[in-house]
Write a protein that binds this DNA or RNA. Structure first.
Lengths: 185, 185
DNA sequence: ACTTGCATGTAAATCGTTACATGATTAC
DNA sequence: GTAATCATGTAACGATTTACATGCAAGT
């Protein structure tokens, strides 16, 4: 559990959104932050158990009688979370399957490259639209603005939107460039 | 070896750049494509051995007497490479430590957020400058233009440049936004 | 002599995904 | 009644990273 960012994701989400179960955390990831963070049950539950046994989170008493196991963060957990928060953002080696394939483009047929780019564009357009919807609902929303995380969520949304925008433009430019290049030779 | 993209990276690089050793492949990754693809020795060598035992690559006779083991792609390897190339680009769940931390920004001190963003900006500025240098040397270079991969490498470079540009702009905007927001409240 | 770069590999650990297994509750 | 959603977990597997280990060759 040295490098598990899942650990910190869990600590952060729980510390921010009060008593939460593994299921709650998963749903929150899927619905609210999946454009920059993802978790799955198979990893989440063991980490949760480990965090509890290490005293970084503990059971809340909100679930009386149900199967649901809600957790809150402990003082010890909060300290570890803060240590991570002020530490450096770890370098993450890039791995883009799209670019890898594209760099071997001379071994592909022109139509296959274009359809790969079109598929990427379509996928990103969907993400872009979805994010923009969320953003529009969130920005200047009185309810949302009361929350202390408001400005931070705004900027993460903007990150997603900005980079998807750039990606969409690149798709268009690239399709045009390759069409011209292959037409012109 | 079902989902190993390393496998395809190796096949692609070897098929494109002729007889290559594990070391050669690693150096190529580091120097030429590290902005979108990375490999490490610990993974590379076992995969190389496996690809050879599966008949997807075979030893070339270029290394007589040296310790260096150079490989070329086989017909079987080329077929598998092409199958992967025309297949769909797999969805990769996002995981950005920067955005994860930022989304917990209300639990950080203002100065720590700003320095995190400044560090990100500085790092990306470096990458941006480096990529631009490579791009400038490559674009319209007579030597480079003769190679069949020329247009494809151009567009991958543009991808890197475009997305770093977007990221740099976002850093500036975000620093300004958060400064204003926290100053104004 | 010594450091840097070339060169290949193994072992251990870990992280994360996928598939599997189970069962309660709620809505239609 | 039955499908969807809520809810928790385990097991197996696979991919990748990190650390370790070795040794040659070339330049300074």
């Amino acid at each position: 559990m040295k490098n598990s960012k899942t650990k910190y994701a869990v600590l952060g989400v729980i510390s921010l959104l009060g008593p939460m179960s593994g299921y709650d955390i998963k749903m929150f990831c899927d619905k609210a932050i999946s454009f920059f963070w993802n978790e799955n049950f198979g990893h989440l539950y063991p980490v949760l158990a480990q965090l509890e046994s290490n005293g970084l989170i503990c059971r809340s008493d909100l679930e009386e009688g149900t199967r649901k196991k809600s957790y809150v963060i402990t003082e010890k957990g909060r300290i570890e979370l803060e240590e991570w928060l002020v530490g450096p953002v770890e370098y993450q080696p890039e791995r883009s399957e799209l670019l890898l394939k594209l760099s071997f483009g001379n071994q592909m047929q022109g139509k296959d490259i274009i359809s790969m780019l079109e598929a990427t564009k379509a996928r990103n357009q969907l993400k872009f639209d979805r994010l923009n919807n969320i953003y529009d609902q969130y920005i200047n929303n009185d309810e949302a603005m009361k929350k202390p995380q408001y400005p931070y969520w705004i900027v993460t949304l903007r990150y997603g939107i900005t980079s998807l925008e750039a990606s969409l433009k690149w798709c268009d430019d690239t399709i045009e460039f390759l069409n011209k290049y292959n037409g012109g030779k």
